[in-house]
Every structure is written in structure tokens, then in C-alpha cells.
Simulated scan of single mutants.
Amino acid sequence: MATIRDIAKRASVSPATVSRVLNNDLTLSVTDDTRERIIKIAEEMNYSKTSKKSQTRIALVQWYSESQEQDDIYYMMIREGIEKQIQKFNFEIIRIFNNDFSTIDGDIDGIIAAGKYSFQQVDHMKKYSDNIIFIDDDQFQNGFDTVLTDFKYGVQRALDFFLDQEIKEIGIIYGEEKSTDGLKTIVDKRFDCYKDYMAQEGLFQEKYCFKGDFSKKSGYEQMKLAIKKLDNLPKAFFISNDPMSAGALRALQEASISVPDDVQIFSFNNTSVAGYVNPELSSISVSTVQMGAAAVQLLYDLLMNKNHVPYKLELATKLIFRESTKKVEKK
């Protein structure tokens, strides 16, 4: 039985356009020739009206499993932003975990992919739809719309906060991860920003850099390693996310190293974890909900605007100061 996707491919238009034409949506901006061509192709392919979809169907692809998402508030908040915004367009949303498309029943009109993906995984997505928006994975150079966080200036502002206190030895605990198929290694852009800026200031030292895997356990282990290896621990650490920072904080407390009196910590993401630990973490706030909403807006334009061109959006960050850093008196 012919599907909307089959008709769209033959007519060289998007599935969403076919769906709206066959549902007699007179607000759709297409030429009469295009509208007539779609209807004619549908008739030639014996398209059954009973198979029409009443809604545009969007797949929300997440690289984590559902249980892993519960432990990662960052991606959970992105999803909530997507689901809230998508209601405005009356799209049907299908959730897919671990990039597993076997759960899809029927056609989909577009994809929002949150997470990190290998070339092979992206190629697999394209078999289901060419209309893909990526969140937190820079696929812009491959022709896809991409929504990202500003890492560069957020990290620089946190480092400047320490440098303004004349702290020149600043450590970092950062992460490295792989796509779920293991075929792509994802470097931590926060580390790249840290390294470039500290080198620019003539202050970069490899011995102050500790690489983990973004988990609380890893943050704990890497800070324990720093305490063991370094004769003099840096007076400040930038740490790539809140769970790692919470783990690092525990290691410092076990070693009777006071935060922020002996060592200050600036974290990244500003999830609820930052406010649950003691002392509470200063953290760079990321606009996770807005990232999800922006992806939906981009997908809507991609589906409905024949003149759409790919966008690369970087959302700004904000420094949130709490108890893990010292208050600096302004002169």
C-alpha cells in the first residue's frame, strides 16, 4: 500500500506537504501545479484515504536509553522543551531511545535528534526522513540544522572570574564519550575552550588536566587522582558538568580540603544537581528548554518553507554564582 512518504518521494516534495495537500489544507503555500501533481500521483499509486495521517509525525531520537535519561537532567530538560513547544503545532511525537528505529510504526515526517551520533547513525536516520534537526551535535557542516550551546564564552567568563582573583593555576576535570554504536569519539569542547584560552594567557599546564567520562564517579576519581599526583593543588577547578563536580566535591571533602577556601569550583550546565550539594555549586547555566523549543521551530520551518536553508544556532550561557566560589568585592 502506498504511503505519504512514497508519494512525496515521487513528487519531489516533503511528506508534510503531501499530507496537507491530501487533507485539503488550503492555507498551504504551493502552486496549483504542485497540488494537482500530488493528487494525481496519489491516485496513480492507489493511495488509500484511510491511511492518511491526521497529524505531522515527528520522531524524537535520543541517544540514551530511557533509564539513562533519568540520570541525565540535561537531556531530560531538552526533551521537555521539545515536548512543550511541539504542542503549539499539533505534531504527533514518537520517542525513540538508543537510536532504535525498529519501534517506528508507519511514516514519519521529520526527526529531532538529541545527543551525539556517528556518521553511520546519521545515515540510518536519513532512511526514515531527510528532515532532521540535531541538538547538541554539530552536524551543520553535513547540511543539517543544528542547535548548540555556546561553550567558548561561557568557559572564558568562568576562567576570567578566577583570573581576576589573580589565580593563575586553574585545573580542569573534563569528559570524553562515544556515540552509542562506539564508532565516534566525542571530544569535550569545554576542554578545547579551556586549553585555548589558558594557552592564550600563557597559563596552560597539562599536569592540571584530568579526563573522565562525565559521571559523578568519574569526577570523584579524577579529583582523587589530582590530589594524589599534585604536590600543590590548583586554587581553582573548572569542571565540565554538575555530576562530575559533585563527585569532585566529595573527594575534596574526604581529603579535608575546604571549598571554596582552599579550592574553588566552577561547574557547567547548572542542572538541579548544582543546588543539591553542599556547598552549592557555581555553574554556567545552559538554556536547555530553549534549545528544545528552538529545534521544534527549525523543524517546522524546514517542513513548511520550501526556501528553508540550514541554520546553526548557538544559545548563550550565563554564570550562576553559589557557594563553591568566593565572592569577589568590587573595587
Rank of each mutant, 00 (worst) to 15 (best):
I78N: 11
V122K: 10
Y194V: 07
R190P: 00
N98S: 15
D6V: 02
I320C: 13
P243V: 07
N131Q: 14
I82T: 06
L299I: 05
D107H: 11
A226G: 04
S256T: 02
E254Y: 04
S118Y: 04
W63F: 15
A16N: 13
Q141L: 15
C209V: 10
N305W: 06
L159V: 07
A236G: 14
K40W: 06
Y153N: 06
E80V: 12
M244C: 02
T180M: 13
T56P: 01
H308A: 12
T3V: 04
G247N: 06
S215C: 08
M125W: 07
L225T: 01
F268L: 01
V30D: 11
E314S: 09
L22M: 02
A248L: 03
S267Q: 01
Q222E: 13
S48I: 01
Y300E: 00
I58C: 09
D213M: 08
N24V: 02
I39C: 05
D107Y: 08
T185I: 15
N270V: 06
I135M: 10
V155K: 02
D130N: 15
K126R: 15
F268P: 03
D72K: 12
E221R: 10
Y300C: 01
V296S: 01
L225C: 00
S324K: 10
K189C: 12
R57N: 10
T271C: 04
A114C: 03
T180N: 15
K228P: 00
E201N: 14
Y197L: 05
Y153C: 01
Y153D: 12
S324E: 12
Q264F: 09
D160T: 12
N24H: 11
S218K: 06
I173H: 03
N278A: 06
F210R: 11
K217P: 00
L281H: 01
I4P: 06
M244Q: 02
K88R: 10
D192A: 15
E80D: 14
V147R: 10
S245I: 06
G106F: 06
D181W: 04
I41C: 05
V30P: 02
I111F: 07
D6Y: 03
D213R: 00
P234I: 05
V147F: 06
T180F: 09
K9V: 04
K235A: 14
V61N: 02
R20W: 04
K178F: 05
G154M: 07
Q139M: 12
L148G: 10
F237Q: 11
G212T: 00
D109P: 04
Y311E: 15
M1D: 03
F162H: 09
A274M: 07
A199Q: 02
I135F: 00
Y300S: 06
K116Y: 12
F237H: 10
D196F: 03
M304V: 05
K49V: 12
E44F: 11
A293V: 02
T50S: 15
G275D: 10
E92M: 14
T325E: 11
N99V: 01
W63Y: 15
Q200T: 13
E206L: 00
I93F: 03
V309S: 14
Q200M: 11
I167L: 10
K52F: 10
T317G: 08
E66A: 13
N99Q: 09
D261W: 08
V18Q: 12
G202R: 11
